[in-house]
Nucleic acid binder design. Sequence first.
DNA 1: GTCTATATGAAGATAGAC
DNA 2: GTCTATCTTCATATAGAC
Lengths: 217, 217
Amino acid sequence: MTAAKKKTRAGDPAKRTAILAAATRLFPAQGFTDTSMDAIAAVAGVTKQTVYAHFNSKDELFEEMIIALCDKHSEAAKASPGNPKPIQEQLFDAGLAFLNFVTSDECIAVTRLVISEVNRHPALAQKYYEDGTQRLLNTFAVFLKEQNKLRTLSIPDPESASSYFLALLKGRYYLRMVLGVKPRPTAKDKEENVRDTVAIFMRLYGGRDPLHTHSRF
Amino acid sequence: MTAAKKKTRAGDPAKRTAILAAATRLFPAQGFTDTSMDAIAAVAGVTKQTVYAHFNSKDELFEEMIIALCDKHSEAAKASPGNPKPIQEQLFDAGLAFLNFVTSDECIAVTRLVISEVNRHPALAQKYYEDGTQRLLNTFAVFLKEQNKLRTLSIPDPESASSYFLALLKGRYYLRMVLGVKPRPTAKDKEENVRDTVAIFMRLYGGRDPLHTHSRF
DNA sequence: GTCTATATGAAGATAGAC
DNA sequence: GTCTATCTTCATATAGAC
């Protein structure tokens, strides 16, 4: 029986997982409308009716897939642990990790997808921003506040500074990559971008002007 | 007669204009797939077959519409004339104009649209970037070089500085607005963003450090 | 070149057997 | 719950009259 009619009550969790995995692979690669339920069923190794047994509609499947990705992206915004490195290196490491993440093929594809469906699924786009960008901004702002207390940085407004740091990191290549503009930036390009960003950040918030190499202590 | 088969040889330019106008209104508002040729024909006040007489396919109509918008956006990237204002105010004016442009409803909608169709129309996305963002970056870099010569600013790498200026302007609200995240920033929010950006820019390239007011020369 | 009417095909969703 | 087979809808594109 399992009398639920609207709710998704499926017997085989493995097939549900397979369907979600197929959707996660196909939707970002081909877009919402160009991904048919038949294709998802085929990739998942089930029939279309099984897909509809687990998800009431294409929209519902799409939303669950995006939400799962949001959770994954939230994980990426984890705070960096206590770190003995110099602050410049900490900023460089965090910046490079962030830039590599947001410009990864998967992240670019999902961003395109969510933007494509912002009219049809506005709440999803909002959640994607909050679980991705917003959460990362907050996490980095917390890090900056700690540096303020440690006196390694001197930042009047950590929230704004966090926003500016990430803006400088994304500004050069992010939109380019979302639009698929060629040539794609190389790993070296990205590292240089991070270096420049850290240098700017230190000039703004380092408390001294490191360009003149006089000691800060 | 009019032996052209592939080429678009239409007799009534007014209808062609009406069709393009309808496409310009409907595509950005509803997206590519959700905009039917019937709807375009209806809004344009012609029949569907007339649309096909002017444009060989939906894709072709879409591309011509985007290209027309690219031309329009290129116009927006015009150089600012010789200006007697203080450099801070010139930067503020230019920054606010730029931010208001890229966050306008029309620009946001078109950006979403182009990103949505980057898989289907990669060349269009490339052209959109080059005619929009890239051209604006170049124009602003030229302005910065002039300021270098005038000694109003001291910028080692104007191309990079141009990129950073626009990145700081877009960083805070652009992705939010593309994703339709609420609440939308107010005019006051944007002005404050521009002020902060100009302040940062002056600290980086103003030639003096206004925070500590000691001369570097 | 423009219209009325229609063909074609794809894809979301469903009915019924096991 | 899962499969095979089908229904229905709708949008692109075309055929033929004026």
